[in-house]
Simulated scan of single mutants.
Amino acid sequence: MFVIDCTQKHFGGDECELLHSVDIDDVKGFPCAVSKDSVLYGVKVIPLQTEYPLDDKHPALMEARVLKELTQSKCTPHITRYISDHVVKNSSKALTCFPLKFLKNVIYHKCQVLQSEFIENGSLEDNHHEIGEAEWRYIIFAVVWSLYVLQEKYKFIHYDLHYGNILLDTTDSKGITYTHGDFRFFCDPPGGLMPKLWDFEFTELHSLGWKNPFNQRLDGVAPVGQFDPRLDLHFFINSLGELSDMPQVIQDFVFSLYPSEEADLLDDNDSGDDAFSEVSSCSGSSQCSQCSSCGVTNAYLYHGHIRKEALDLFGDIMWTPEQLLRHSFFDIYRLP
């Protein structure tokens, strides 16, 4: 297994490619693909922001800790595999090609470098228009199952689980058995599809006492410091409502999970208004209650977190992963 070397150009690989442009005004990290002997590896360079203490609870360091723990636990096959992580000086040879000098007033002199497997097929966001009913059903099952077992072991909260953070890998497996508690399922991954969760920069593992300092900034806006099994699933299911080209069976399932009055809010109607944003994502806003990208005031989500008023309005009808696994939608996988 190739492990990156931050003292070398291209992290010791043959080439290093930045996967997409990065807004240097938003210190989130630089996602790259590093090739070594024709094999690609994912590398994420994450500057350490000075607004947080430089300790092992720094949000940039938490992501690697979480991914390593989830990979080693093997609770679910639907986790992007951790390989290595490194805290290195910004002057390291591998980092000289990144525009870190423009961030010098807001970052420490070190970066976190996280290495993982590279998923060449990209995300659900990239591929949703090409996915059929069988694949969709399995993707949703994989996410719900993973949330269930991770919540059972860790009281896990991802805090940013939407279709863009579901990567679509492949597998040669002809069948996977899923067992936990009184659940028993068997799935033959359609077309060799293997969905995997990714992007754990906001994640908390409450059973281990791992709480992310980033989330503490949202106290008063979203539930902070407490575990709620409904949050991630609600955020994920609602994000799917933005994808208008889902097969009808899948779309019907997604909208059946909510009473008609809330489904009206979720429906992406022909009026051109982004009504769905009111219960889905508010990606344009990280500072106030009005989303600069969609214009929705008092959006129910704030930087991937469900607002407290959403729990008051819809809490009684939000599903937990355990409840949803009992839904007839997944009977096709259920073992007697």
Rank of each mutant, 00 (worst) to 15 (best):
D5T: 01
C6P: 04
T7R: 02
Q8S: 07
V34D: 07
D37Q: 11
G42A: 03
V43H: 00
L48Q: 08
Q49H: 07
Y52I: 13
P53Y: 02
Q72C: 10
Q72Y: 09
Q72G: 03
K74R: 12
C75F: 01
C75H: 04
T80G: 02
H86M: 13
H86Y: 13
K93H: 02
Y108C: 07
H109I: 02
Q115Y: 04
S116M: 15
G122Q: 05
S123N: 12
W136K: 01
R137H: 08
S146C: 00
Y154C: 06
I157N: 04
H158G: 04
Y163D: 14
Y163F: 15
I166N: 01
T170R: 15
K174H: 10
G181L: 05
F185Q: 08
S207T: 10
F214E: 08
N215D: 13
R217C: 08
L218E: 04
G225M: 06
Q226C: 12
Q226N: 14
D232K: 06
L233K: 03
N238V: 09
S239D: 09
G241C: 15
P247F: 01
I250T: 15
Q251T: 12
F253W: 14
S256Y: 12
L257F: 07
P259L: 04
E262N: 05
A263C: 13
L265C: 13
D267H: 14
V279S: 03
S280E: 04
S281R: 14
S285G: 11
C288I: 10
C294W: 06
G295I: 12
G295D: 11
N298Y: 08
Y300P: 04
Y302S: 11
Y302M: 11
G304E: 02
G304D: 06
H305Q: 10
K308G: 07
L311V: 07
F314K: 05
M318T: 05
W319N: 07
W319D: 08
E322T: 10
E322V: 11
L325D: 03
R326T: 12
S328M: 10
F330R: 11
R334I: 10
L335S: 13
P336F: 08
